[in-house]
Amino acid sequence: MGFAEVFEEYGANYAKAIFETLSMTAICFALAMVLSILITVMRVSPIKPLRVVGDLYVQVFRNIPGVALLIVVAYALPNLKVVLPWKTCVEVTVVLLASAFGSENFMTGINAIGVGQIEAARSIGLTFGQTMSKVVIPQALRSAVLPMTNLLIATMLTTALGSQVPLNPQELTGLVSYITTRSTGAGIIPFVISALCYAGTAFLLGIVGNRIDKKVRVLR
């Protein structure tokens, strides 16, 4: 199949698939950010059980393979009488994975600030709330721009897990498998289109992230 034929027959599918991949990426990344802030707050809180749960959460979800988690969510949970729609399964999986890495990014950002700054803030009389809002959080956010850009790209790549469950409409990876098994002799074109969509988006996101980082980075 040539490029024109693929475009003619599956153009609409591709439009839907691109939208599906991008919208899933956006939703999952937003949710993952909220969740990772929550987890990070738990991990730096003075309450021991919360710290332990937060650390455990991160270790579990940064070390579990994405497919293994998806299979647990999509195929094991129904046996525990928790039945989610296919798309929600994928989204839950991606959010759980991404939030663990997001929390790690925040922790790295916080750790990079250095104890001396906290001591300095305290010695000039800032309260805990002031230290957090004026010293810790702004710096942690600034130094998290680049890692979070990478996480956003990784989140997009992780949504490819959607190809392992029957989604309708499909995302970019599932669509390649669908087209290639449906039209014999579809050739390399469907793969190339999807791959370029992913790599192109990743490239653009990288450029944007880099620009923002250059503007806000804290030079140490």
Binding site: V176, A186, F203
Partner: peptide, 20 residues
């Protein structure tokens, strides 16, 4: 390219495209 493409897509490339 290899950093910006999901590994699953590459697997489908070797599984479905190359045999063609």
């Amino acid at each position: 390219f290899f950093r910006g493409v999901p590994s699953l897509l590459l697997i489908y490339f070797f599984y479905l495209v190359i045999p063609q």
